[in-house]
Design a protein around this nucleic acid. Structure first.
Lengths: 343, 343
DNA sequence: TCTCCGTGTGCAATCGATTCCAAAACAGAA
DNA sequence: TTCTGTTTTGGAATCGATTGCACACGGAGA
């Protein structure tokens, strides 16, 4: 057998036929003798023929591949999103090219460049924390190239976004704490560059106001790093310094909530009796903690799946990005667990 | 501007030159007038020219893309591996196509088929739990196609593997429990289809024997599902039924360890005073549990990075798979935490 | 004036598959 | 035997970029 893959030409040579005949025979075109078809398929099988998708891509100017640009893979939420993307893309016959920006703008830009060079049919993006300027996206969007953003929605007019209702999720979490009788609710907030952080903070504020509690700026703590240590220290300091001790924490992510939990335990406070804690994202480990951590569950898999469906529909012209709904907002679900249930 | 990407032809038309001149000018070939080069590059810039990687792939029979076949993305360990793969591949100018088998053999087979169709240059594989027969891999391996297996090493002679030293990791974990004075050590074992499960069990047995403790078959519990519930039930039952209560658990994974932890707590046993627990993998949440869970840390990122380096070296002929070392075994590291430290 | 040589370009084949158009091959009818 | 129509097959262009080879042009030397 020849080195490398057998091509349509090898079959043609073997049978003394032209390549066009082989091509048609393999695809069951009408007007090819059925005996010829049989022989062609037989030889194709024998030579272990496999169509060259690259050649097809070149001819059709379609690669049946979509790109995914994500801040980092090692992140429970994002990994569920990827899983959803992969699932739908695969079932519809598309490949998935993955690239992580590691929250770096420069890598985000080079990623989209190489992906475009590779003639991908469309791209799914969750942009990095560093990204404040979206020119690298608008430039290609303006050329009519399909992009769907997920989780983190950019400030680009007419961009298609799939996200969760961060505002409502945060509202629900805060309202839940209030309903459990907590009064001094502290919010551990995320970086202001991300719309999701702002939305969560706003949901928190709205829930307070709706329940007649005025927002205390000293109760909103910025945790830009998002590490356990950071929030643990912040909360420890807070417990020491505030005149009136906070009796609950709503963190914009689960990691922060764990830090708060540790700081409270360090301070000898009982959870949920003396302090209530709620996180955001509902990472796998929430149910494994003691006490189990309440958290706002985000449908990561669904988000990936929906975003991919929309992207593929745009690629296949089943949807027109100009006339369609710009944003798809998925519902969150508050998982009430022991860390915040007093009753 | 024309719809779609500008090609070399567009530049040629614009400047009334032939495509060959453009090609050479863009690549700074000698024998092209420098004034021409300047103009070509200027127009390329103006038209936002981007070379078509597909066309290049077809011509060179090289796609600069590698495939990754993995059981599931939503798995802390695997996501760290992916991160390592992505890092190296990217830095060496390769794309990464991702496909998850969801532990299904059929999907594994179809994945490798489409990847081959897409002319990938090589593939990294961690096979599914269902896979008992490796024909779909040996067939392509025999044609000289580069495959590197990671984490789960198949029973294929001459296959290249990158894995962690599961035996030693398990040995260390068990020896650690013994050194802490635990005597009745139960092992929660994984599916026997995976070599890693067998290695870990053997490491456990060896550590016992080395320390003069005979292996009690009733102390080896199979947990094929790998869910918290499964191990929780198994352990609960065990605590009830065994004549002599086990005083420690070494689980082949962290999830199982959490289940054991819960069952022990349910039974009113104090950790680590009355029961010691050690897991395997050192997932992110281990340090967040209370008490913090001891676990055997696996270098996922390094594994992905090393496997990718080997694969790319083979692809680029810097390494010859026939003469090289077949297996690269990475060291594990026991993270001793509160769940198993009595002293 | 003719030849030689170097510089700068263009032509055309190539990679693998598809597809429009044309052309064989063959059948049956006149 | 010739013509017409159908069935089956082949030729060639195409997708975008690369590259070996040839060619055009100019000046220099004989």
């Amino acid at each position: 057998m020849k080195l490398g893959q057998a091509t349509i030409k090898d079959i043609a040579r073997e049978l003394n036929l032209s390549v066009s005949t082989i091509s048609r025979a393999l695809k069951d075109y009408p007007g090819i003798n059925s005996e010829t078809k049989r022989k062609v398929k037989e030889v194709a099988e024998k030579l272990n023929y496999r169509p060259n998708a690259i050649a097809l891509s070149l001819r059709k100017s379609r690669s049946f591949t979509i790109g995914v640009i994500i801040p980092e893979v090692v992140h429970f939420f994002f990994s569920t999103v990827i899983s959803g993307i992969e699932e739908i893309a695969n079932s519809r016959g598309y490949n998935v090219i993955l690239s992580q920006s590691n929250e770096k703008l420069s890598r985000e830009i080079s990623s989209i460049e190489t992906m475009l060079s590779n003639q991908i049919d469309g791209v799914l993006v969750s942009y990095s924390k560093e990204t404040k300027d979206f020119d690298h996206f608008t430039k290609v969007l303006d050329q009519g190239f399909p992009i769907v953003f997920f989780d983190r929605a950019p400030a680009i007019p007419n961009a298609i976004n799939v996200m969760v209702d961060d505002y409502q999720g945060a509202y629900d979490a805060t309202a839940h704490l209030i309903s459990q009788g907590y009064k001094n609710i502290v919010h551990l907030a995320g970086p202001k560059t991300l719309k999701i952080s702002i939305d969560r903070e706003n949901g928190y504020k709205a829930a307070l106001e709706k329940n007649g509690i005025s927002v205390n700026p000293a109760h909103i703590i910025s945790c830009p790093l998002g590490t356990v240590e950071e929030s643990r220290e912040m909360v420890a300091e807070l417990l020491d310094s505030l005149p009136e001790r906070p009796d609950s924490f709503f963190s914009c992510n689960d990691i922060g909530a764990v830090g708060a939990m540790m700081a409270c335990r360090d301070a000898g406070l009982k959870i949920p009796l003396e302090v209530g804690i709620v996180g955001f994202s509902d990472w796998q480990f929430c149910a494994m903690l003691d006490p189990q951590l309440s958290s706002v569950s985000q449908p990561g898999f669904t988000m990936g799946a929906k975003a991919t469906e929309i992207l593929l529909d745009i690629i296949e012209k089943k949807l027109d990005p100009k006339t369609m709904e710009q944003s798809l907002i998925l519902e969150t679900k508050l998982m009430e667990r022991d860390s915040s249930k007093r009753f």
